[in-house]
Amino acid sequence: MKILVPVKRVIDYNVKPRVKADGTGVDLANVKMSMNPFDEIAVEEAIRIKEAGKAEEIVAVSVGPAKAQDTLRTALAMGADRAILIETDTEVEPLAVAKILKAIVAEENPGLVILGKQAIDDDSNQTGQMLAALLGRPQGTFASKVEIDGDHVAVTREVDGGLETVKLALPAIVTTDLRLNEPRYASLPNIMKAKKKQLDVKTAADYGVDIAPRLKTLKVSEPPVRVAGVKVADVDALVTKLKELGVA
């Protein structure tokens, strides 16, 4: 079985994004960028499936700028076998990404596509589900456990209030949640070796996909700032407040 792992280059999770003064977006100039943390978990899971002897090849794919090659190299250093970059200088929405991935799936025929449940920049949480829809294949979203069993995969999902397990016919699409695994480090020897692994660069046009955006961002602003409320004099007053809030 082949596993396809889509990954996205996003702002590093340690960096607090700064809204541009002119409201056109978030300032990403010279800001540290990394692989989307949920996608890192997806890469790790793919490697573990391969290490367990249930997959032969891992192909990492990214849709993004030329620098997303660094992100793919990280995936290769972690253990992916080869990579494909769909290079574009514009932002590509989840629907268009799903369409590109659909075309790649048609070429590569993976048994499993595993990707992050959402990217920490646009927080859309859509691409995996959309890809599953376009392919007419089942989806196991927000996975905290993935078990391949013959021609099926059992996915334990993190749902509101607990966990739920579904059984999906392969090929299937799985999206990862935080507790699925702890991704490994890309070690220095593996980073050196990753430089020699195959990385193909293509464009959306190569797959005949229209990536024109459907949503127009009119404005990006800072979230409203919380303002200080009241100070109460003593515990009794606090008890009254808690009762008003209905928690006591």
Binding site: E182, P183, R184, Y185, S187, L188, P189
Partner: peptide, 8 residues
């Protein structure tokens, strides 16, 4: 730890 990677 489980993800230990020795320096090079």
């Amino acid at each position: 730890k489980a993800d230990f990677q020795p320096g090079m």
